[in-house]
Amino acid sequence: MRAVGVTAFGGPEALYVVDVPREPLGPGRVRVRVTAAAVSPTDTHLREGAYAGRDPVQEFPYVPGMDAAGVLAEIGPDTDTDLQVGDRVMAIVVPTGAHGAYREDLVLPAASVTRSPAGSTDAEASTLPMNGLTARLALDLMGLQPGQVLAVTGAAGAFGGYVVQLGKAEGLTVVADASEADEQLVRDLGADVVVRRGDDVADRIRAEFPDGVDGLADGSVQDAAVLPAVRDGGAVTTVRGYRGDGSGRVRVHPTLVRRVAEDRAALDRLREQAEQGVLTLRVADVLPAEQAAEAHRRLARGGVRGRLVLAF
């Protein structure tokens, strides 16, 4: 099977097309013929070797990718699913070794796969599972109630944008950061208040909400720098494992999407919300899988709005 991976960790140039064995189809699993795989920052960390010690598979090639979309090709025995062969599907992938989304054939737990949103392209569908589930988990961990105030950093990004939209759908008041160039985009996503992004974003948020916000989703990975924006007893969700400053003044929840990678109900709810227009599927560009290195270079340069997607 054709995949894009690394046989030695390194920069974008380490990515190239590799042959990988066809994965066996066991009970409770389905096979997806992948046509689109979204590119995300976590893929670049895998490519560089940041997760090698965590991975139970300690041999090359390593294949990145946590988001896939395509066609359901096969259903394993004793599998609880209402999907049928031939359905257009999207999936979240937990990469291990050569098992990552950047491959044309992928076997997954049935609970990690659901139908693609009606009317979406495969590229659009591939942008939803991982960041959508991460945003959903972040909000669930904070446990905010309608009328409370949610702050979002990195609001123009994929994770941050979904948090803004899901928060608004749940009746929260949303304050979000943005560069001048991204301000209209973030307002269009639904933010009630937009502050300028930067190292002093906590001060800017406090200027708008002097008592502090009730919850903050830190999509820009500023960690300790954003904690002052949150009121005493409020909640913060982080996406790179940061656990707070130890003061206990605010509740800090590292948001690990692997915990919900088989939450079929949550994934299907995201599909419904995309179909209803609650969530916006944003594709920056689609590149052939053979150009994965260029996709990673473009991501590293920054300024990408929407997801870069590899096409198989």
Score class of each variant (00 low, 15 high):
D203R: 11
T280Q: 10
G11T: 09
Y62S: 00
P12N: 01
R264M: 01
L141F: 09
D211L: 10
S120W: 08
P129K: 01
A261R: 08
D105F: 03
A181V: 09
S112I: 05
D263C: 08
A68S: 03
V39T: 08
L270F: 06
S179N: 06
G219W: 01
A261S: 12
S120A: 14
R115F: 04
A311V: 03
V4Q: 01
T121K: 11
G10C: 05
E74N: 12
A202G: 02
A52R: 15
L141V: 14
S116W: 01
D55R: 12
L72V: 10
D200Q: 10
L308V: 06
A295Q: 05
I92Q: 05
V30R: 04
D218K: 06
S112W: 05
D263N: 11
A36T: 00
E104H: 02
V63E: 09
P12I: 02
V164M: 09
G246I: 03
V113A: 05
A14G: 06
L172F: 15
T238N: 00
N131D: 10
V309P: 04
Y51K: 13
M90T: 14
P228H: 05
R136M: 13
V175N: 10
E272V: 14
G49N: 08
G119D: 08
A229P: 04
S220Y: 02
V164K: 04
L108K: 07
M90L: 06
R269P: 04
D122R: 04
P64R: 03
G154C: 04
A207H: 11
V260A: 01
G26W: 15
G303E: 12
P24W: 13
I75C: 05
G100H: 05
V71I: 14
N131L: 11
A266V: 07
I92S: 02
L299Y: 07
P228M: 11
F312L: 02
G97W: 11
P77C: 11
A156K: 04
T114P: 06
L172M: 14
G212I: 07
V85D: 03
V286Q: 06
R2G: 13
A69W: 01
E180Q: 12
R54Q: 15
A292I: 05
A265N: 14
V175Y: 00
H253P: 03
T35N: 01
I205R: 07
V57R: 11
D218M: 08
G143I: 10
V260F: 03
P41C: 15
V6K: 05
R2Y: 10
P210Q: 09
A265L: 11
A111L: 09
A73E: 15
T42W: 14
R2F: 08
M142V: 10
E13L: 10
P146I: 13
V18R: 04
G5R: 13
